[in-house]
């Protein structure tokens, strides 16, 4: 326990507080853990499980469904090359081949200096500027082999550090306040909904009993 830093633990609790059910915060907390550690560690999953009230296996089971959640460490820069239809038509496979050769790693692998993890991804929605690449989910567009090599050099030298945050950082803007609708109003609505639900259930059961 205590895997999140005190600051991130406070953020996690704030995030949970904006959802009607804590489990909804599961994916946002996975992103938070990735922003802290660069990947989703076993320890983080255990703590997230405790915070949202599920088992660690449920956190892992959920996280493993999503491409952006990495349960193994990745490089400092996650370089994603789209090869879906629009990028393919613009030469994305040739770009991927070039990247594989110039970096010396295949999709899913990390360079030996730990700087770059290469991955081939599905459409990332910048099809008018194909082929497109994202680095830690920040877009670089109209990329050809030459600009790709330049980009890798610039990433290694830290030239893009202002626009490309470290891997796992999703949003550099955070919610500035909690929920504002008066809690009594929400509680009243909740109670009325629960009552209506119980009534529907009782009615359905009575109808079922009649049939028997």
């Amino acid at each position: 326990m205590g895997h999140f830093t005190p600051e991130n633990l406070a953020k996690a609790k704030n995030t949970i507080s904006v959802y009607p059910q804590a489990r909804s915060a599961l994916i946002p907390l996975c992103h938070l853990a990735q922003s802290q550690d660069g990947y989703l560690s076993e320890e983080a999953m255990v703590e997230i499980a405790e915070l949202v009230g599920v088992s660690p296996a449920e956190v892992r089971g959920t996280a493993s469904f999503y491409d952006m959640l990495h349960t193994e460490p990745v490089g400092k820069h996650l370089v994603s090359i789209c090869t879906n239809i629009a990028c393919m038509l613009a030469g994305a496979y040739e770009l991927l081949e070039h990247a594989t050769e110039s970096l010396g790693v295949h999709s899913g692998q990390t360079t030996s200096d730990g700087e770059i993890t290469l991955e081939e991804v599905e459409c990332i929605a910048a099809c008018d500027r194909a082929p497109c690449v994202s680095v830690n989910h920040r877009f670089f567009l109209d990329v050809d082999p030459d600009t790709f090599d330049q980009l890798m050099t610039d990433l290694r030298s830290g030239k893009h550090s202002s626009e490309v945050p470290s891997h796992g950082t999703l949003s550099r803007v955070e919610r500035s306040l909690g929920l504002a609708v008066p809690r009594e109003q929400v509680a009243e609505e909740r109670a009325a909904a629960d009552k209506a639900r119980a009534e529907r259930k009782a009615k359905a059961e009575a109808a079922g009993a009649d049939k028997k």
Partner: peptide, 26 residues
């Protein structure tokens, strides 16, 4: 009384912009 804007995770800039817009709307 509560609405959610679900934004694709790959849209990091989009998430930042909408989060900022929601903060400002409040």
């Amino acid at each position: 009384t509560q609405a959610f804007i679900y934004i694709r995770g790959e849209f990091a800039l989009g998430i930042e912009r909408v989060t900022q817009a929601v903060n400002e709307a409040y």
